[in-house]
Design a protein around this nucleic acid. Structure first.
Length: 1196
RNA sequence: GCUCGGGUGGUGGAAUUGGUAGACACGCAGGACUUAAAAUCCUGUGAGGUUAAACUCGUGCGGGUUCAAGUCCCGCCCCGAGCACCA
């Protein structure tokens, strides 16, 4: 008996198959085609890894199986041989990428042969070969001619280490996919494929293909289609007059002089910084001005009644006050300026007077004289080129309201009134709403429509709830100089910060940041309201219009931002002024809707009545218990609610809640704490009233009892229900109505108060009551917006500043116009005279040869494109080259295209779900559109292989040192065992845990198989001659059926288990039928080709002497030229089965019966069984369920 | 946080789509062969229970639908992968 020596056998057949050119593909038109494709490898120095082994084995099984079934199968292979690792290796070692590629590829080929993979390795495709990239360039030319590729200057992801642009899809965690360096943003001109043109088809056509659902979903998500509307908002400038200067160039900038206030009598000997006004008001105004981008000089004032008058006067005179100056004076500073201007006749640009002093109130003689402004000659107003603005306030005696009014007249000034200028108490400048008011002044002093801002939203229905806008930091609006953003410096700072923020930083701070654009506002087109505008980096420049309308009541991000801003601004103002800032309003415009069902359903024949109600959550005064109503009395059911009552005309929710709570509970003292959740609409039929409640508009208020003072409630409130106290953790169980549950969940913080769903419109003018889905379109139309579809997908940037890639076949005219090099100049060769070391410019720019070639062909002054293409371009069409790899005239002949494409089965890793598959699909669609091919989906069926993990279930990686090398496994157990284990260990698409023990198990199976062929007497008897028991041929046919079906569904693990069952069973017998053994070998051959071929030959050779009169082994046809066996349905038809007998669904007995037993008979027989009688005795048989050929269930 | 997968013996995994839970394999235990070990072969192997059986419990947890649930429905927990504010 020969031993199973896997090494010998495998070496032998590797050689023989090579000699016979077993896998060379020759078109056989008489057969039906099948195209099974692997994702081709990048030829790395590490060689094939276990993942390759798994997926290539799977495709090889299908290849062999289909071939045995009589298909003409194309099973090609190639190498994705352009790419970074070879170039990086070249940079390090100086070895040309071409060499590295060849060495590595030949190693791959050796490994593939070793594994017995039946790829046609004589017709390999290398993407770096000029016979291939010629056609990549040709296709680029076609795309160019058809406007499907264009040059754009765009901000791209830039890897500073690779010195190249990177597609969004190739960025992981803000890092370069290959080298893990942090990605920067850089403005680079480059070529872009217009993949977005095909977004719609790329989504829709997924329905046509047989792919894993998850992959389809991922592709759809990646393309990210969303339906919505574009809506225009008018942007108005509510500018502070100061702003003209702000955005102007440095040299035109005005100087602003803010003068100190005057000291009181008490203060006149104090240093200016310590005086009341100069301590508070002036620095504040200075700060506010500086915040708006204005540089302010702040000179000391030469008030004549101070001891340091002369000194200050000198300093003041030194100031460069000219026609371009803006003078700002506050309080007595204002008066001083008026006086000074009238006396000196100084020409200035603008005068701003804030809160002038009230002249008559001065008792101090010098002061009074100085301030005798009624005597002043006001003709100086002609010296002021842009006018005078006066802020005043109406609440303080001291503030010169009259003075201000007088000046307004005399100086033709513009008057802006503040409600409150501030209070002077005990020598301190105290509370003031001035900053807030100043901003309000800025907001309302609007200058008319400056521009439109378009936003994209998926929820146009919530437009009435849009209480602010947000633009992305990169939005052009901010760069619009006309707008004169007051706090431009602050905004600019924010934008710079946002730009420099790394992805990591953005992830770390989950909270949202942003800055209000002061001096700007937008008009909500739905209701004409003026709303603020913010810049914030939670809005992305590249998506939609780069601007959003924010609806904090119905969008989580907007809500988070609004809450944060409100808190922040409140804090900021509180620091400064101890008052609240104006808050962003969170306005609900969609109410969640509930519709009664069953007996509560709306009845068309009954009247509809609207009602406004309040649900009241009432907490016990000391215990953690809540007041609920038990309706058992009335309904007879265990039905609980909170206190619910109507809201009467003119009543607030809180008033109604308090009133109802007192009436219903009898408790007297309570306080309203807060509103819980928003408005909810309920529609139902109220049987006791005989009317439809359509709708009940409900809200919820939370009350706390302050003590237990109580009085029996009126009978009308207790006749229907009892009041009960329920513990906090029991409330959720007790409450029945969904609406109340929602309020409760919001109350206990289990559910967000935010409602992001669809419902019924409220607070939306004439649209109230409309379904929000319907309102989307209606409201969009109402405001002149446009319904659009938006995609997340962006155009595909393919320019790479690298050497080892396909040159972009473009040249530029002296004027800089791009031109395709033309078909006759293809291949547009990758130059050889290039230094690989990256310097930031593309390596090809250093090629003299390329430059000369361009000038020679196109004329002087012409320059070549020096970027190469993203390698994803190469891999986007390689499967089109496979059927015709040697064709020099076409990328693939039309006959071959017609015969072989599309691909019938594509197998590869799930990591290519997004990019590669999307790009390849895009290529096919674009080529289809250009009329180059007739189909528009490349891969009809797609399957992924799962990851291969080490024995502890950990991802294999070099750094962990747990990588299993296929070579070692083949050495130890042979290719057959390795292949089979990979297929047996888990379903193809799930993770494989690689355990050597497991490989041993499969090896044992192969040995057992081997032994079976050595030991057993083979008989030609096929089962009806009495020599062998009938079970064997039956098992054979079952195995054929099972294995065939499993392979069809690519359930290789169960197919192998069926082969094992076969061998286990056959091993038990002395004599086994030869025919069955032969058929078994064919079933085995796709999985374990070597041993199957060897045993096949040995079987046939031994037959040679006996009866086949063959003379040598060479004449035996390979097992792979045989026919896949078919099973005989008659054979596997069971005549006798084990009928399962259940009582009440529990297995109690099994009885042997004929397969076609009738229900009657089965019933009789099973009831006759002793075991069954044990359970049925004395009981009535209520029901019998009979499943033919399977089971009978007796219900007692 | 969102999306998609997935929770079945000691382990990898089966289960005709609602019909005998645990196929097949690994591991483990016992036995045979052997001076011995390895290899091989045989037997057993979800838990409890018993001399054995009967029987009971069992597919992440809780509930539901059904004659019957690993499979369907509702709620929750855990694990894995992917995505990163997509308006």
């Amino acid at each position: 008996m020969k031993k199973y020596e896997h090494k010998k056998i495998e070496e032998k057949w590797q050689k023989k198959w090579a000699e016979k050119n077993m896998y060379e593909h020759k078109d056989d038109q008489s057969k039906e085609k099948y195209y099974v494709l692997d994702m081709f490898p990048y030829p790395s120095g590490d060689g094939l890894h276990m993942g390759h082994t798994e997926s290539y084995t799977a495709s090889d099984i299908i290849y062999r199986y289909k071939k045995l079934q009589g298909f003409d199968v194309l099973h090609p292979q190639g190498f994705d041989s352009f790419g970074l690792p070879a170039e990086n290796y070249a940079i390090k070692t100086g070895v040309h990428p071409k060499e590295t590629t060849e060495t590595n590829a030949s190693n791959y080929i050796k490994q593939m042969k070793m594994l017995g993979l039946g790829h046609d390795l004589d017709h390999l495709v290398y993407t770096s070969d000029l016979s291939y990239y010629k056609w990549t360039q040709w296709l680029f030319g076609k795309f160019f001619e058809n406007g499907l590729v264009e040059q754009k200057t765009d901000k791209i992801n830039w890897c500073p280490s690779c010195n190249t642009g990177i597609a969004n899809e190739q960025v992981e965690d803000g890092k370069c996919e290959r080298c893990k360096t942090e990605i920067e943003q850089k403005e680079v001109p480059g070529w872009f494929f217009k993949i977005t043109d095909f977004a719609e088809d790329l989504i829709n056509d997924l329905d046509k293909v047989d792919w894993p659902e998850a992959t389809k979903k991922n592709q759809k998500a990646w393309i990210g289609r969303s339906e919505g509307a574009k809506i225009k908002f008018e942007i108005r400038n509510s500018k502070f007059e100061m702003n003209d200067e702000i955005l102007n160039d440095e040299n035109e900038k005005s100087n602003v002089v803010l003068v100190h206030g005057c000291p009181s009598d008490k203060e006149k000997e104090m240093e200016p910084e310590t005086r009341t006004y100069d301590k508070h008001w002036q620095p504040w105004i200075k700060k506010e001005l500086e915040k708006r981008g204005v540089e302010v000089s702040f000179p000391l004032m030469p008030y004549p009644w101070t001891p340091i008058y002369e000194e200050h006067k000198k300093e003041f005179e030194k100031l460069d006050i000219n026609e371009n100056s803006i003078l700002v004076g506050h309080s007595c500073g204002a008066n001083f300026l008026v006086r000074w201007l009238s006396e000196t006749g100084q020409k200035i640009k603008k005068l701003i007077l804030v809160a002038p002093w009230n002249e008559p109130s001065h008792k101090n003689k010098i002061k009074a004289e100085f301030y005798n402004i009624s005597e002043v000659d006001y003709s100086f107003k002609n010296n002021i080129s842009e006018g005078v603005i006066i802020f005043t306030s109406d609440n303080e005696e001291k503030i010169g309201k009259d003075t201000a009014k007088m000046w307004t007249d005399k100086l033709d000034a513009k008057l802006i009134e503040l409600k409150d200028h501030g209070h002077y108490t005990e020598g301190e400048m105290g509370t003031t709403e001035f900053p807030e008011l100043l901003e309000e002044v800025l907001q309302t002093d609007n200058q008319g429509v400056i521009t439109d801002l378009e936003v994209f939203t998926t929820r146009p229905d919530t437009l009435f709830g849009a209480t602010y806008l947000v633009v992305a930091p990169e939005h052009l609006l901010i760069k619009n100089k006309e707008l004169k953003i007051n706090n431009y410096n602050e905004v600019r700072e924010y934008i710079n910060k946002a730009k420099n923020k790394t992805e990591m930083e953005r992830l770390e701070s989950k909270s949202k940041t942003g800055v209000k654009l002061e001096g700007l506002m937008a008009v909500n087109p739905a209701n004409g309201e003026e709303i603020p505008i913010f810049v914030a980096d939670y809005v992305l420049g590249g998506y939609g219009t780069g601007a959003i309308m924010a609806v904090p009541a119905h969008d989580e991000r907007d809500y988070a931002f609004a809450s944060q801003m409100n808190a922040e601004r409140t804090r900021k103002y509180a620091e400064r002024t101890q008052t609240d800032a104006k808050k962003i309003e969170i306005r609900q415009v969609v109410a969640q809707k509930f519709v009664g069902e069953g007996e509560n359903a709306i009845r068309k024949d009954k009247p509809m009545t609207e009602r406004r109600t309040v649900d009241v959550i009432i907490k016990h005064w000391e215990k953690d218990e809540f007041f609920c109503l038990d309706w058992n009395k009335k309904t007879g059911k265990n039905w609980h609610s909170f206190v619910v009552g109507g809201v009467e005309e003119g009543e607030t929710l809180e008033e109604a809640a308090l009133r109802e709570a007192q009436e219903e509970t009898g408790y007297k003292n309570m306080r309203a704490v807060k509103q819980v959740g928003g408005e909810i609409h309920s529609y139902f039929y109220a049987a006791h009233k005989g009317v439809n409640r359509a709708p009940v508009k409900r809200n919820c208020i939370y009350l706390e009892l302050t003590d237990g003072e109580w009085e029996e409630p009126a009978e009308e409130h207790t006749k229907n229900h009892d009041g009960v106290w329920v513990k906090k953790d029991k409330v959720a169980q007790v409450i029945n109505l969904s609406e109340l549950k929602i309020y409760w969940n919001i109350f206990i913080g289990k559910q967000d108060a935010l409602f992001t769903g669809q419902g019924e419109m409220i607070n939306s003018g004439q649209f109230d009551g409309m379904d929000s889905r319907e309102a989307k379109k209606t409201i969009t139309e109402f405001v002149g917006g446009e319904m659009t579809t938006n995609y997340r997908l962006r155009d595909w940037s393919i320019s790479r500043q690298r050497y080892w890639g396909c040159p972009i076949p473009i040249v530029y005219s002296p004027e800089g116009k791009a031109k395709f090099v033309g078909e006759k100049n293809l291949p547009w060769l990758l130059p050889e005279d290039v230094d690989f070391v990256p310097t930031g410019t593309a390596p090809l720019a250093k090629s003299k040869e390329l430059k000369e070639r361009t000038e020679k062909l196109f004329g002087k002054g012409w320059t070549p494109e020096v970027d190469t293409m993203d390698t994803f371009v190469d891999s986007s069409w390689y499967f089109l080259r496979y059927p015709d790899p040697e064709n020099e005239k076409e990328f693939c002949s039309s006959e071959k295209l017609k015969r072989w494409l599309p691909v019938d089965l594509y197998i590869g890793g799930a990591e290519h779900t997004y990019m590669h598959l999307l790009y390849a699909r895009f290529f096919v669609k674009a080529m289809h559109k250009m009329g180059l091919i007739e189909f528009n989906e490349p891969f009809l069926k797609l399957r992924h292989q799962g990851m291969v993990l080490d024995k502890d279930g950990i991802k294999m990686s070099k750094s962990k040192g747990n990588v299993v090398n296929p070579n070692d496994m083949v050495e130890k157990f042979g290719a057959d065992a390795t292949r089979m284990y990979m297929m047996f260990a888990a379903p193809l698409d799930e993770e494989v845990v690689f355990k050597e023990e497991g490989v041993k198990g499969v090896y044992r199976f192969l040995e057992k198989t081997w032994k079976l062929f050595q030991d057993k007497v083979l008989t030609d008897c096929e089962g009806d001659c009495g020599e062998i028991p009938k079970e064997l041929p039956v098992l054979l046919h079952k195995t054929i059926k099972g294995v065939t079906e499993d392979i069809e569904e690519m359930k290789f693990n169960t197919a192998i288990s069926k082969l094992m069952i076969f061998i286990n069973e056959f091993s038990k017998h002395e004599k086994v039928p030869r025919g069955a053994m032969e058929k078994f070998l064919i079933l085995l051959s796709p999985f374990a080709p070597f041993i199957a071929e060897e045993l096949w030959y040995s079987l046939r050779e031994s037959q040679t002497d006996a009866d086949l009169t063959r003379t040598n082994a060479e004449e035996v046809e390979s097992i792979f030229n045989q026919e896949w066996p078919k099973y005989n349905p008659e054979m596997i038809k069971e005549e006798e089965i084990e009928l399962v007998v259940q009582v009440n669904g529990k297995l109690r007995d099994k009885i042997k019966v004929s397969a076609d037993i009738s229900e009657e008979e089965a019933r009789e027989k099973s009831l006759a069984s002793e075991k069954i009688q044990k359970y049925t005795k004395g009981k009535e048989i209520r029901k019998v369920i009979f499943v033919k050929g399977k089971l009978i269930n007796i219900v007692v």
